[in-house]
């Protein structure tokens, strides 16, 4: 082959390589041909990245029973998830807070009826470094002093929060304003959603908060319970006193309701329309409700208590 033909060949060859790449997909559809299962199709889930591990675990367990059903989960965030959910693009929306009125109005406008299901509990955990020897328990008032919008630029040493604390500089870490965790924390502690001091180290990646807090004895941060559990040797969970004594975050205190106000419910929203039109969606939701304990455990969240579990199962069976 001479150079000219080679050069000529290069144009189609470049295209061909590109085409060839796409052909690599395919195959494997029959990999796990389920015996007696009749269902097939797709269950589309989007929404909160906090709830994503739960629904992903549910999808994984569900695939053992119904291998022909593809459950896929996206993480557009609670708000972003509701936006596509209310346009009918997804079947289920993960949410780390209840749906807002304006979001529900959008759903109504598009004729999407939905059912709210609480699937697990998360304990928002306030953490300090394992090296911190002066904080074991904080009252909600002290947390408000620390995180309130008025604290910005003024509350900078620990003795301003509590005179018994040393006059050491405060280092704060927390989630960014897009996070549902931020919304919930500010709502419960500062009294209004989204209102917080802004002079703290904000990160959307909770692992960055773990790094920051564990690195300094004077640092404090907050995030979901799972991140504390995974890093329990480097961090210390602060007990919270909301007026009835100090309570440490744990599965038990979150379940029995004594860990207040930072235990928060995690939801999935199911489109009734999708559940009645697509049997695989209905089957998935039923499976989710009946296997919720196993799912919560696999995703390392706090399972529901008996009362909540009863509510979940009855609400799930009434769909569709």
């Amino acid at each position: 082959m001479n150079r000219r033909t080679l050069r000529r060949a290069a144009v189609p060859a470049t295209l061909f390589i590109a085409l060839g790449l796409t052909a690599c997909g395919g195959g494997n559809e029959e990999e796990s041909g389920g015996g007696d299962s009749a269902l097939s199709g797709e269950v589309l889930v989007d929404g909160s990245s906090t709830v994503q591990p739960l629904t992903a675990a549910a999808g994984e367990f569900f695939a053992e029973e119904e291998p022909q059903v593809n459950v896929s989960v996206g993480t557009s965030g609670t708000g972003g998830g509701f936006e596509v959910f209310c346009q009918g693009e997804t079947d289920i929306s993960n949410a780390s807070r209840p749906i807002k009125d304006e979001e529900a109005a959008l759903c109504e406008e598009n004729g999407i009826e939905f059912t709210e299901l609480q699937v697990a509990t998360d304990a928002l955990t306030v953490v300090v470094s394992a090296d911190n020897d002066f904080i074991d328990c904080l009252t909600t008032a002290e947390l408000a002093t620390l995180w309130g919008p008025d604290a910005e630029g003024t509350v900078s040493t620990w003795n301003q929060v509590n005179p018994e604390f040393p006059a050491e500089e405060i280092e704060l870490y927390g989630p960014g304003t897009d996070s549902g965790t931020f919304d919930y924390f500010t709502d419960e502690i500062n009294g209004e959603e989204g209102v917080s001091r802004t002079d703290y180290n904000a990160s959307e990646d909770d692992n960055v908060i773990v790094q920051g807090v564990s690195g300094s004895a004077n640092a404090l941060g907050y995030f979901g319970y799972t991140y504390f559990e995974e890093n329990a040797e480097a961090l210390k969970a602060v007990e919270i006193d909301s007026g009835e004594g100090c309570v440490a975050p744990s599965a038990e205190t979150a379940q029995d309701g004594t860990y207040t106000p930072l235990a928060r419910p995690l939801f999935i929203y199911v489109s009734n329309t999708a559940a009645s039109e697509k049997p695989e969606v209905k089957a998935f939701v039923d499976f989710y409700a009946t296997n919720d304990d196993r799912i919560a455990e696999a995703a390392q969240y706090i399972p529901l208590n008996d009362e909540q579990r009863g509510e979940l199962e009855s609400a799930a069976s009434s769909i569709g």
């Binding site: 997909g25 494997n28 994984e60 695939a63 593809n70 996206g74 972003g80 596509v84």
Partner: peptide
């Protein structure tokens, strides 16, 4: 991510209209 690219799927994408 903005377009809702999925983070959890357990099947092979197999076409232009596949997640």
């Amino acid at each position: 991510l903005l377009l809702g690219g999925l983070v959890f799927i357990r099947y092979d994408p197999d076409g232009l209209f596949s997640g």
